[in-house]
Amino acid sequence: MGQRRSPLDVVELELLAARGWRGTEAERLGDWVLRAGGGGYSSRAHSALAVGDPGVPLPAAVRAVEEWYRARGLRPCVQLPGRQARGADAVLAAAGWDRDEDTLVLTVELDDRTPEPPAPVHLAPQPDEAWLRACRQHGDGPLPAGATTVLTGADRVVFASVRAEDGAVLAVARGVRTDDWLGVSAVTVAEGARRRGLATSVTRGLQGWAVREGAGYCYLQVVASNAPARELYRRLGFIEHHRYHYRRAAG
């Protein structure tokens, strides 16, 4: 699998990724995208994506974001990707907003030489109940009501799983094709099935599907503290494209 520089910059890739992972409500503030919906599932679906120019001075943009989320009963949250968001980050920091850890956005080029997955992978256009039970929020709890809306809210989406002979779901992942990109998310392996290459299997299964669909690149997000996942994706050829973090209003 060859690797070359991604053809999208930070803003372009974040806007593309936002199309593949949506809440149920979105509104523009200049170039920024305010997102909500899904019953509190996923920070990406419940944050303002701070890319480009909000169309007003940054302190006014922060106030507008806070009012928008408070009106919906949500804690205001802003996603700040790459160097282009440093100005907004400084204003939010000065206002006392809490900072989360970094999330890495990793990319890899795809081609028809993508290796076959080590284990058979089942692909489906919708997640069944077994898939949803296996896909735990933050790896440790059941999905909240509304999560399915976020997971299925894209035009070309597929749900990968590895299943035991008795039908038990051992590993899951979600893939979405947006333009010529595959987005991989929700990679989860059952505790008793780890260290068996199943995360590799669902990732490779999605990549093979995307190549057949005509995609040429793949992206995914992983928190900086998740060393095992970062090592896995390094072995699969991913490189860091950029980083982002969230800031959340106090209280």
Rank of each mutant, 00 (worst) to 15 (best):
E213P: 04
G37S: 12
R28V: 07
G39I: 13
G205P: 05
Y69F: 15
L170W: 05
A224Y: 05
Q3W: 02
P118E: 03
E12V: 06
F238D: 00
G30L: 07
V172T: 15
D102K: 04
E27P: 08
R195M: 04
L132T: 09
L58M: 08
D111Y: 01
L206R: 02
R19W: 07
I239P: 01
A124H: 13
A130P: 06
E116V: 00
R19C: 11
R196Q: 15
R230D: 02
L206T: 02
R5G: 01
T152A: 14
G2S: 05
P7W: 00
H242P: 05
R22G: 09
R156T: 14
R44M: 11
E109K: 01
A119M: 05
A50Y: 10
H245A: 14
R22W: 11
V150S: 10
A160S: 03
S225M: 07
L106I: 01
R194S: 03
G40H: 11
C77M: 15
L106V: 01
T200I: 01
G205C: 03
R72W: 11
A95V: 09
H241I: 00
D53M: 11
Q126W: 14
A48I: 12
D166N: 04
P59D: 03
P117E: 02
F238H: 01
R99D: 12
L220K: 00
A215D: 05
Q137F: 13
G52W: 10
S43Q: 12
V158L: 09
S6H: 02
R174E: 14
W131T: 01
L104Y: 07
L151H: 11
G73D: 13
L110G: 00
R194A: 02
V150N: 12
E116P: 05
A250W: 12
R75P: 13
D100S: 15
T103H: 09
L34H: 10
W181G: 04
P54E: 07
R247G: 07
E231L: 10
D98V: 13
E109I: 01
P228N: 01
E191S: 12
S225Y: 07
S225H: 14
D179A: 15
W131K: 04
D166G: 02
V108Q: 01
I239C: 03
G251D: 15
A164L: 04
A94L: 14
A250C: 08
M1L: 01
T152N: 06
H241R: 03
V33H: 08
A88R: 06
G183H: 14
E101A: 15
L132H: 08
G175V: 08
L132P: 12
G237V: 00
Y217N: 02
D89R: 13
A45K: 10
T103F: 06
G23I: 13
G251E: 15
L132I: 11
Q137R: 14
A147V: 14
L110T: 00
G87Y: 04
R44H: 13
C135I: 04
G205E: 04
R247N: 07
